[in-house]
Design a protein around this nucleic acid. Sequence first.
DNA 1: CTAGAAGCTAGAGCGCTGTCTAGGTCAAGC
DNA 2: GCTTGACCTAGACAGCGCTCTAGCTTCTAG
Lengths: 144, 144
Amino acid sequence: MSTGLSIGQVAERTGLSVHALRFYEREGLLADPVRRESNGRRVYTEDDVEWLDMCIKFRSSGMPLDTIRKYTDLVRQGPGNEQDRLALLRSHQDHVNAQIQDLKECLNVITHKVDIYQQHLAAGTADCLWVAPSSTAENTSAAS
Amino acid sequence: MSTGLSIGQVAERTGLSVHALRFYEREGLLADPVRRESNGRRVYTEDDVEWLDMCIKFRSSGMPLDTIRKYTDLVRQGPGNEQDRLALLRSHQDHVNAQIQDLKECLNVITHKVDIYQQHLAAGTADCLWVAPSSTAENTSAAS
DNA sequence: CTAGAAGCTAGAGCGCTGTCTAGGTCAAGC
DNA sequence: GCTTGACCTAGACAGCGCTCTAGCTTCTAG
């Protein structure tokens, strides 16, 4: 907790590259600018790592860096804007839910295609998947 | 079915821009190159639209254009490579499943934060969300 | 006949998110 | 002293997926 971490160590823990870490800092995603040793090297705390982990979750769920920066700014400003933070979080929550729905729909389509290929391959009738060379679409649906 | 569609009509139906449609064609994502009128204008079939809809599903579930092109190539080659197509589809299926899992995990984190903000806002104790100005991380977890 | 809408090609440009390079500092170990 | 490796900054470059522009043709309506 008290040791202080080098950029390399943080890279290892978070999975971000040292490049990305410096980039994120430049982009203002780190609630406060990282402390430095006398020689200018960055010293991260465990809190920084936690914050970065959260940023990674945000990113990997599709939040643009810009929005993460906005959130960071709110937090940096301190107490008083909790409504704004909540609004931002909820809007992202909606966004993620929508993404999941979307993906599930895509998954259905894909799974349907997979099933059809499997059936036809098992039955040895794979070539029936094609109507004619001139037809561009595979006829995945029975009643096309 | 027999009418033939202009690029504008296809854009409207698929939601892709005319730019994107031409781009997709250049990139080889259209099982066969679109037919042309005598004046050089593209004429799309309903099959093309179906195929594009599938591409859109692929894309929106994170399949890179490169992979869509590979799949398209396989289909274009005709019967005989169904195993390859199936492998590609299954690999993407896995990928989508993983994405969904990932998003759900992110959603948990976000939902947790939302809940905490809501609780504290309701209780009027929002300022307790901060330990000290020097601490960068919000203490979202009770036992930090 | 003319204007406007829609289409065409080739290719430049863009937004986003990093990644990498050049050129340099600093500390430890041989 | 010298090498090695981790770190520093500023800024160029890259990959992806479009999007837009320039400059032109062609069709349709008035």
